[in-house]
Every structure is written in structure tokens, then in C-alpha cells.
Write a protein that binds this DNA or RNA. Structure first.
Lengths: 250, 250
DNA sequence: CGTATACTTGATTGTGATCAACGACGGTGG
DNA sequence: CCACCGTCGTTGATCACAATCAAGTATACG
């Protein structure tokens, strides 16, 4: 109960049925016909709960399942020998994680909040490809989308200054939150990331993250605190994310 | 002839046959049985030549073919509005490029040297998936491998100092060159990258690249010049790539 | 042989790292 | 209810790595 490692618990109550899945249009089975969804559901092994601060898997593990994240935030990252950490991606509801083709995973995954995941056994995926090739095409598309995100992140890390990078990251997460919550625009958003996690994502130190966020607060672009954030001026935030070394005044 | 944009020329002489392709084990059709290779070859639309310094495609283009790089080096990159450039990856022979599922491409591709490419029409790929699902699995695996590379690059850019980052990059390219040339170890390698391209890959300035490479030369780790490089001490280079702020002396 | 491109080197500046200390908050147990 | 503790965020002082500005030198090319 306390070994600090994979702690998936089977979700006993309320196993959501695939045919009524609210995020299906984001996930692997978007291409599947309605009448096939109960068939899809047979592929699903289980719904799981993963507590906050627990690892879903660790780099180099051979993971036997793929997962669709149903609720919560998961952080994908890699560690360096000297203890540095690079956050690769934040997975939000609808994102697809885990094993790809039986190869050991190339990153670790940690739950930032408590999460609900739908698991699909890896060994059935190839069978699935053979029977329904449009699923294969969808998976290729998902990987393509992940790659696009990865490329955008690379620009943040490689070419932008600290403030640009953080602004870009906030805009990106903001848009993705809007997309899955469909909440009104200038709403306070649930934002469970610590400054250390932001730092390891943007490739800067947590001290500097603190200063940058203070700067954004002082500029009236956002309010934050208590694991929440409110973007007050999305336009300005987008401008900051794309402007190179434009200091403040118009 | 001089519009600076996609300038694929059909390769008229010596169209290499798939069944005798020397790099097939690296590429998309590694899973295909020998007796099916002439069938595979029917999917191939054409072998092309792309001159050095020409774009294969540009970000947001809808590309109708996928390519296996047969000869040469190609640089994948993204531009920012202010003219900054982030190099995402260097493609070497055997790498798979281009369209994925009819979506506009998320990056641009430029030939660093003259290249030979094998083209596969995109619209036939889905058909291919349906007929031979192991090809789909292979493509998923290729994308997975690309993603792994991308993640490793992210660590270079995000967490490592300039000298670590460049050392890591050289080791990586060195290993990949060895892999496709199978040349003896301490060999001078064909290395066509300019310092500006290295800079845009590692996320630092070309001036600083020059200083770092001079530092590596002075340490006796490598010799270079004339678009060639010779790694004299791979062990030391690997050490530099992984050590955090270890200055020089053991 | 002249021009353009690539690389080198020096001087200076600045962004972000590092070191250090303090404050705010949330949970726990007395 | 308050004291205690741990985690997280804030703020200041100083330092260093890499950016920038600026010339100069090789090298490739026509």
C-alpha cells in the first residue's frame, strides 16, 4: 500500500459504458460505429483509479495496457541521472497513454491529481488492427497529434524566453481545458500544477517561474492561487507568447 | 527552376528495386515477406532526387506522399513568426518522412545534402493498412521511435548546458551514422551540418556553437572541418553529454 | 581573383541560475 | 483550538552561462 509505485485500483462503482462515453470523440475509438461500441467495450479490460502523486508506469517498464485518460491530469516526464527532470507533456482527459506495440515505454507517467483511466490490453491491439483497420489509422492520427504537440513544446523550450515559454504553455493548457470542459471563457480554471512542475516543463528553475508568474500577475494578465488560475487577458497572453523580447508597453 | 520550393526530380537512372533495398530493415516495409516485395514496389510511386538546400515540403502543406529517405540528410524544422528556427530532427537514410493520414504537415523539411527519396502515395496507405495490418503496426512503431528521439532531444534542449547538449547531439548522430554506414569506429564521418543548423537544433546561438566546438577540439575530443568530423574520444564525449557541470579534470 | 558564406574571436550585456532566507498555507496531533 | 511541521511559493543578492554586438579570418564558389 505504500511502495510508491503503480497503484492502479479497479474502479468498482460506476464503470462508464463506452457507448455513453462523453470524451469518445477525442479518443482512440472515435472512428468506431455506434453499433460496434459494445464490441469495443469488450476490448476494454477495466476502468481504474490512480491516486494523486502515484506513478502509472516508469520509463523502461514493459506496460501491458494502453489507457485513455478519463478524469484528471497526468504528467509524462523523463529523469536524468543527476536528478534533473524534463516534463514532456501534460495529459488531460481524452488523451491516450501507455504501451505502444510491446516496446518498453520511453517515459514515466505520474498522476498529478486523482485520475480515472480506461485500460485496453496491449496484446489485443494488433488483433484489433487486423479486424478494423480504421482503428490503426486513428492511432496513427493520435500519435501524429501527440507529435505536433511535442514539436510545439520543443519551440517553447528551445527558442522562447522564460516569459514567452510560460505564456505559451498557459495558453495551450487553457485552450485544452476549455475544449474538454466547455466552460464560459473568462472562468476560473482548475489548475493543479506546482511551480516546480511548470519549471521542469519549460526547462527553467522554479525560482524563476515564481518571478515570471508574479510578472504576469502584475501585468494584470492572470490571477492565480490555491491550485486555480484565471486568465484575465487571453489576447495579451497570446501576444506575450509570440512576441520576441517585446518589453511591455505597446 | 528557381522558385526555391519543392523541387523533386524523378530519378531516371537506377531506380532501386525494393527487394534489393539495402536499408529496408530500417524502414516501413521491414515486416513484409520477401515474396511480397514486388507487390510493395507497386505501392511505391517513384524514386526522387531532391537537390541540397531545397524544401521537400513546408509546414501546413498537405503532402500527398510519404517518403523513405534513401540517401542524404534532411532537416525537419519549424519557423517562428520572428524568424527564429527550431530544428526538430535530422533525418538520415532509412528514416520515414512526410504525410500522415491526410493532415497538413506540422513541420517543414529541407534537404541539407542532395537526397534520394522513395515516395509512397498517401491515399494508398489506408488501403495498405486494411490489406496488411502488420504494416500499420510497423508505422505505429516508427512513429513511436520518432517520438522517443523527440523526447531525448527535448532533454537536450531543456535540461542540458550548451556543451552537454552539443556533445549529446554529436554522439547521437555519430551512432546513427555508424549504424547506417557500418564503418570502422574511429573513422572520419561525413558531417554536412553548418554551425547555424547545430545552433537551431540545440537552441543556442551559432556564435556559442563555435566556442563550444572549439572547446571540444581543444580538449582533444574531436577534429573537424570541411564538412567532416572525426570523434577521437567517444567515451569522453558521452561523459560530457551526461555529466552535469563537471568541469574538465577527472 | 573577387565576392559571398561560414567560421572565429573579443568585449560587453543580460537572462536566468544559484544560494539563502522568509512567509503562507494545509494538514496533523496534542 | 493552537502548535507544529512539511510543502509550496516569494523575494533578495550574487553569479555564470550564453546572447549580443562587432570585426576579423578562412573557405567555397563563380
Amino acid at each position: 500500500m505504500k511502495n510508491g509505485y503503480t497503484q492502479l485500483r479497479v474502479r468498482t462503482e460506476k464503470q462508464t459504458a463506452c457507448y455513453q462515453c462523453p470524451i469518445r470523440n477525442l479518443a482512440l475509438f472515435e472512428a468506431v460505429d455506434k453499433e460496434l461500441l459494445d464490441w469495443t467495450q469488450k476490448f476494454r479490460s477495466q476502468q481504474y483509479i490512480l491516486d494523486a502523486r502515484r506513478l502509472l508506469y516508469r520509463e523502461d517498464d514493459t506496460v501491458s495496457e494502453s489507457y485513455t485518460l478519463f478524469t484528471g491530469w497526468i504528467m509524462l516526464f523523463k529523469m536524468l541521472p543527476d536528478g534533473k527532470r524534463q516534463v514532456l507533456r501534460f495529459a488531460l482527459p481524452g488523451d491516450f497513454l501507455g504501451s505502444r506495440g510491446g516496446v518498453p515505454v520511453n517515459h514515466s507517467a505520474l498522476a498529478i491529481t486523482e485520475c480515472v483511466l480506461c485500460g485496453f490490453p496491449q496484446d489485443k491491439l494488433n488483433q484489433l488492427f487486423a479486424e478494423r483497420s480504421e482503428i490503426a489509422a486513428t492511432l496513427v492520427g493520435i500519435q501524429q497529434r501527440d507529435m505536433t504537440q511535442c514539436y510545439n513544446h520543443m519551440i517553447n523550450v528551445g527558442q522562447r524566453s522564460a516569459i514567452e515559454s510560460i505564456a505559451g504553455m498557459l495558453i495551450d493548457l487553457y485552450d485544452r481545458c476549455i475544449e474538454c470542459h466547455r466552460t464560459a471563457r473568462p472562468e476560473t480554471i482548475w489548475f493543479p500544477l506546482s511551480q516546480e512542475e511548470i519549471a521542469d516543463y519549460a526547462g527553467i528553475t522554479l525560482v524563476h517561474v515564481s518571478r515570471v508568474i508574479k510578472e504576469l500577475r502584475d501585468q494584470g494578465v492572470l490571477e492565480n492561487g490555491h491550485r486555480k488560475i484565471r486568465i484575465l487577458d487571453t489576447g495579451e497572453l497570446r501576444r506575450i507568447a509570440n512576441a520576441s523580447t517585446q518589453t511591455g508597453a505597446e
